[in-house]
Simulated scan of single mutants.
Amino acid sequence: MRKVLLWILAIIITLLSAAYQRLTGPTYPFSGKVNFLGQEIKFRLPRSAENTENCQVVVSLPENLVGKVKGYLRFKRHKTDQTWNILAMEAEQDRLIGFLPKQPAAGKLDYYVHLVNGSQEISLTGEKPLIIRFKGPVSSPILLAHIIIMFLAMLFSARAGLGAVNPNEDPVRLARWTALLFFIGGFIFGPIVQKMAFGTFWSGFPVGHDLTDNKSLVAMLAWIAALASGRRKLIKRGWVVAAAIITLVAYLIPHSLLGSEFKW
């Protein structure tokens, strides 16, 4: 019964970390609302797009503002002194639609979305621009396998850590499964996904500073150290707990933070 409860707790930890990582990542759509001309406008703007076509940006208008409000996009390449480009958005029923030009894999654009009515104007993103990163198309089966295996690794990591603090349970098998899953998900499928999306197999240490790659590396090393702690005797429970904590901290770092970036 205790083992069942520990599995349930491990599942809860995994699901919470997955939700947190999903919602805090820099490529997750930027949602918000503004008040313009006495009306509330809700929006959801993209921060990631495939580079097979231009990226559509859509703003839905309240019924009272349809036909009264125009919009435009202002954008430039990220981290460049390029002048800002202006592109008018087209009105389609109750929506304003604009398109950001597609960029090379890992290419980024800074952009604003402005709404205008006569002399009144508002930026949906405020004073700071949004950053959108473009990527190449990734095979759905490969991406799905990568995601599933990485979160199975997180699940087994949490369960191994909980098992290590249970004196009646040997965490060795769980630790081995965790290390194996991290290797398959982070160092086989991960580089394949990275290559498809951004044109490189690895952009973490020592060749780059991609935190997604680096946190996979740190977690993998932590589990190797935990397993190595028991080479001549029983695995040390403290090392397993430490590896599980390191893994949890790594998963709480937003996905794609300091990710691959095209150098203009």
Rank of each mutant, 00 (worst) to 15 (best):
R2I: 13
K3T: 03
L6V: 05
I12T: 09
I13H: 01
T14D: 04
L15D: 02
S17N: 08
G25V: 07
P26Y: 06
T27W: 13
T27F: 14
P29A: 11
R44P: 00
L45D: 08
P46E: 11
P46A: 13
R47S: 01
S48K: 14
E50I: 10
N54M: 12
V59Y: 02
S60Q: 15
L61F: 03
V69I: 03
K70E: 15
G71L: 10
L73E: 03
K76G: 10
H78Y: 14
H78P: 00
T83N: 09
W84M: 05
W84K: 05
W84G: 04
I86K: 14
I97V: 14
F99W: 15
K102Y: 05
Q103W: 00
A106Y: 10
A106C: 11
G107R: 03
G107Y: 05
K108Y: 09
Y112Q: 06
Q120D: 15
Q120H: 10
Q120Y: 11
S123P: 02
S123C: 14
L124D: 03
F134S: 00
F134D: 05
K135S: 12
A145F: 14
I148S: 01
M154E: 09
G161Q: 11
P171G: 09
R176W: 10
T178M: 10
F182K: 06
G185V: 00
F187K: 07
F189V: 08
F198K: 08
F201I: 03
F201W: 13
F201D: 00
F201Q: 10
S203H: 11
F205M: 08
F205V: 14
P206V: 12
K215R: 14
A219M: 15
A228S: 02
A228W: 14
G230I: 08
R232T: 06
R232M: 06
K233H: 14
V240Y: 10
A242E: 08
A243R: 12
V249D: 07
F262V: 04
W264R: 07
